[in-house]
């Protein structure tokens, strides 16, 4: 138990040092919110699209949802890693130019390398986790714990709730009215629902 706590504290202090030395804390926060949004809205789209357009079999929705989340996780992790690594290397070169020394063996270079890895993990993790929460009712439905109809309602509620929570979080980050921020983000979910419903009327 104590060993677990010690490991957790070590990881926590290492991550905190990486953030302090690389300045990547706010980037990671940005990636987390942005990709959690992506995850939720993607699952919302799959759930609404397949239900409204007629294919409401939970098995299909889970397969499509998990497939989309895997793709999103891989694309998010690799894209963020490459982009963040390039940014961190550019910043390191700027400091090297000012210092007139090479910094490759320093704690700064090490922290900036880890910053890219952590940002990639946060990016992929946020999208997959948020998507899985929205998809969870359909997983319950697969286990015959709830009906497909209940899964649809619950999934929609969870997705909109998550969008609202992300908005609240962004409002807190920006130190502005959290409720307004939450409602703005909820509106994104409502626009998605509206567009997919319109698509259903056209098709």
């Amino acid at each position: 138990m104590e060993e677990g706590e010690a490991t957790f504290n070590l990881i926590k202090s290492s991550v905190s040092r990486v953030f302090r030395y690389s300045g990547a804390k706010e980037y990671s926060r940005r990636y987390a919110v942005m990709n959690a949004f992506d995850g939720v809205v993607t699952i919302l789209g799959i759930v609404l699209g397949s239900t409204l357009l007629g294919g409401s079999d939970p098995r299909d929705i889970v397969a499509a949802g998990v497939g989309a989340l895997i793709a999103m996780g891989i694309s998010g992790a690799s894209g963020t890693y490459m982009a963040e690594k390039a940014e961190q290397e550019r910043r390191l070169r700027e400091i090297e130019d000012a210092m007139l020394v090479k910094l490759e063996d320093s704690v700064i270079a090490e922290a900036r390398e880890w910053a890219a890895v952590i940002s990639a993990a946060v990016d992929a993790g946020a999208a997959v986790l948020a998507g899985l929460i929205s998809l969870a009712p359909y997983l319950l439905s697969l286990l015959n714990l709830i009906s497909a109809g209940q899964a649809f309602t619950l999934s929609l509620t969870l997705s909109l709730g998550l969008l609202f929570s992300l908005g609240l979080f962004l409002g807190r980050v920006a130190k502005r009215n959290v409720i307004v921020s939450g409602l703005k983000s909820l509106a994104i979910g409502c626009v998605t629902i509206l567009l997919i419903t319109l698509l259903n009327l056209v098709l």
């Binding site: 400091i95 210092m99 007139l100 020394v101 063996d105 320093s106």
Partner: peptide
């Protein structure tokens, strides 16, 4: 002194 200098370098300074 050598260890001090190494530590300074490790911390990204000169």
């Amino acid at each position: 002194f050598e260890k001090v200098r190494e530590k300074v370098k490790e911390m990204g300074a000169a």
